[in-house]
């Protein structure tokens, strides 16, 4: 689904099933370090699948006629889909999605998904923004971009590391 477009900054490698071979340790993580950027393609099929899995059947996510009728340029992705993809930059890095203790985003721009055989791509990058020695947590600030525009604001995840 996604491909890593920048090299891992800490020599991380992934095995066949997506779990990092080397899990990051709290002591070794430095503020300012970038996590591997990932690109998440999204097309109409992606949205239909997500609608079914999440139970969000709002027609703006699958019905072009309806979307245009309410003034949107085209069908748009579920904001929660984008939110789900963005945090993968963090969970793919740690390998343990259960280590996420906090995660929040603001939905600033819609991800427009045309029915053109290509769809859209959301590119997500992350950076270690802070460390909390007492909790042994790090805060990762995420940036999600589609068509050159930021689609999430204040996207932050706090994750506990061993």
């Amino acid at each position: 689904m996604s491909d890593v477009t920048t090299p891992a900054t800490q020599g991380r490698e992934q095995d066949a099933v997506g779990t990092p071979a080397v899990r990051p340790e709290y002591a070794a993580v430095e503020v300012g370090v970038a996590l591997p950027t990932q690109r998440f393609p999204v097309n109409r099929e992606t949205l239909v699948r997500y609608a079914g899995a999440s139970g969000d059947f709002n027609p703006i996510h699958w019905n072009e006629r309806f979307a245009r009728d309410v003034g949107l340029p085209d069908v748009i992705a579920h904001g929660m889909f984008t939110m789900a993809e963005a945090v993968r930059v963090v969970t793919d890095w740690t390998g343990d999605p259960g280590a996420v203790v906090e995660y929040g985003v603001r939905f600033t721009k819609p991800v427009v998904v045309p029915d053109d055989g290509v769809g859209a791509t959301v590119e997500v990058s992350g950076r270690i923004a802070a460390k909390d020695d007492e909790e042994r947590t790090v805060r990762v600030d995420l940036t999600a971009v589609c068509d050159g525009r930021k689609v999430l604001g204040m996207a932050r995840a706090v994750v506990r590391l061993p």
Partner: peptide, 9 residues
């Protein structure tokens, strides 16, 4: 599967 995440956990 819907979010394309193949993490075995």
């Amino acid at each position: 599967e819907a979010i394309g995440d193949d993490n075995p956990v």
